[in-house]
Design a protein around this nucleic acid. Structure first.
Lengths: 120, 120
DNA sequence: TTGATAGTGAACCATATGGTTCACTGTAAG
DNA sequence: CTTACAGTGAACCATATGGTTCACTATCAA
């Protein structure tokens, strides 16, 4: 997928704001209008609309306007790729440091052997 | 922890750039100097230094300068909080839609019952 | 019809981001 | 000593971000 990296860019960026993470948590509880969200996070309608736009572009939220109110709900993307990326990083991180540990252990063993041979 | 949200902010922001994710992957393979990284990602030393700075401030990378070369390696933070946040969101997402499914199922059942009673 | 309500879009503002160039320092090596 | 190399910091640039106000449209309700 060519868009994989771009998608990670926009989703991680969407998650990098405390208000937007809050909106996601709120929507996990129940759907909400722009007005609801704006009140809960103490900002103007316009400001909240922008945040919702960011979340929507990232696929994390979908909205539908009926009458004058636009209802926001959790979107189709479930942060699968993001979770996978992070998990993979954690694996590599562990592997890297396990390898380092082994080297250290190895060095210790050799040191001991060296000390023994010198004592002889 | 007061800094929890701020930390999530800066780490997700650090992850929202394809170059920085690339640097993390590279460092998972082996340590590297600024020059190494700058070459691999085709940008100036100054540019790469900035990226490394962002990763360092997020705790994802540590660096040490010996002689003229600054060596970068994976840092102490293992994206634990980020992984946890994402996992929790995925849980809530599922719960939310399982609940919706139940409602839909419930509606279907009632509809059938209604149809049966009307037929009588 | 009139008024309040919900959202929208443009314009604006301050600050941050991702990148560069240029001038500089410190270190290594001939 | 001289030159080359690795990094650093300041200044600059274009664009993005997070927020606002203001003017406007569309809808609901009395």
């Amino acid at each position: 997928m060519v868009h994989y990296q771009a998608r990670l860019d926009t989703t991680f960026a969407a998650l990098s704001d405390v208000t937007r993470r809050g909106v996601l948590e709120q929507l996990a509880g129940s759907d909400a209008s722009i007005t609801d969200l704006a009140q809960r996070f103490r900002m103007t309608l316009t400001g909240m609309k922008k945040h919702v736009g960011v979340l929507e572009r990232a696929g994390l939220v979908t909205t539908e306007k009926v009458g004058r109110v636009r209802t926001c709900k959790l979107g189709p993307r479930r942060l699968e790729e993001e979770a996978a990326w992070i998990e993979r990083h954690r694996q590599l991180w562990s592997a890297r440091f396990d390898a380092l540990d082994e080297i250290v252990e190895d060095l210790k063993r050799k040191e001991k052997a060296n000390a023994r041979s010198k004592r002889r």
